[in-house]
């Protein structure tokens, strides 16, 4: 146990007789991007929610920087998240959305940070436009910017490539590399195998609530990955 980064031990999540996660353990070190693959209903989003302290696990514990995370208070300030929803308010402008979240996170020198982020995700030109007028891709860019606003050290992302065009995808990959370079740790759920394998260091395959496979992205070629995935899940990656 290195003590740095995020660790989960023996995470289980059930509700009544429904078991969503069973005995999931993982470690994520600073400067590492770990991808999570798996079919629909494998429990990927639930795992991310448990790690984000959005829902309590039925068993197991989460450690952040070597200390157990209880209600997530210590973790939340250091964590950025891209979830299923965009977490944005359609009637507020891009700038106002970021200002709002910046206040919640008590970001210092907020206005400068907001315009910096807006430029970085390529939305400087639309800062004063309400989010309702944005395309899906613009919303996703803003969502990613919002997750990075408070300079998190941990990034949890659920299908961050959704809705992004080619330019948006390469922007996200750039941002992820930059984030890793700064010592950030990232957990990334994705269906976009090619892009994700390209940017991530490691991957886990989740099936029916269990970790069914794992590997290093550098050591595994596309054909190897397809075989590994099929072994773990019982069907080829789509």
């Amino acid at each position: 146990m290195s003590g740095a980064g995020l660790a989960a031990r023996g995470i289980a999540k059930r509700f009544g007789y429904r078991e969503i996660l069973r005995d999931v353990s993982l470690e994520l070190e600073p400067g590492q991007i770990c991808a999570i693959f798996g079919p629909n209903g494998a429990g990927k989003s639930t795992l991310l929610k448990v790690l984000a302290c959005l829902t309590r696990p039925s068993a197991g514990e989460i450690l952040w920087e070597g200390r157990p995370v209880k209600d997530g208070a210590s973790l939340r300030a250091a964590m950025g998240m891209v979830g299923h929803g965009t977490f944005l308010y359609d009637l507020l402008t891009a700038e106002e959305n970021l200002l709002f979240y910046g206040r919640l996170y008590r970001v210092g020198d907020l206005r400068r940070r907001v315009s910096e982020i807006l430029e970085r995700v390529g939305l400087g030109f639309a800062a004063r436009d309400p989010v309702a007028t944005f395309s899906r891709g613009m919303k996703q860019r803003l969502t990613i910017g919002r997750a990075l606003l408070h300079r998190p050290r941990l990034l949890l992302m659920d299908e961050p490539f959704t809705g992004l065009d080619q330019a948006g995808r390469s922007l996200l990959i750039d941002l992820l590399r930059e984030f890793r370079g700064g010592g950030g740790a990232c957990l990334l759920i994705s269906h976009d195998f090619a892009e994700t394998l390209d940017v991530a260091d490691r991957f886990l395959i989740l099936n029916r609530g269990r970790i069914a496979g794992a590997g290093d992205c550098g050591a595994v070629g596309p054909a190897d990955f397809a075989r590994l995935y099929e072994d773990a899940v019982g069907q080829p990656p789509d």
């Binding site: 964590m79 979830g83 929803g85 965009t86 977490f87 308010y89």
Partner: peptide, 17 residues
């Protein structure tokens, strides 16, 4: 309703404090 749209409520829950 505005909080449920886009899961914004989740964003509030994730904020520290």
């Amino acid at each position: 309703i505005t909080e449920k749209q886009n899961d914004a409520l989740q964003g509030l829950v994730l904020a520290p404090g």
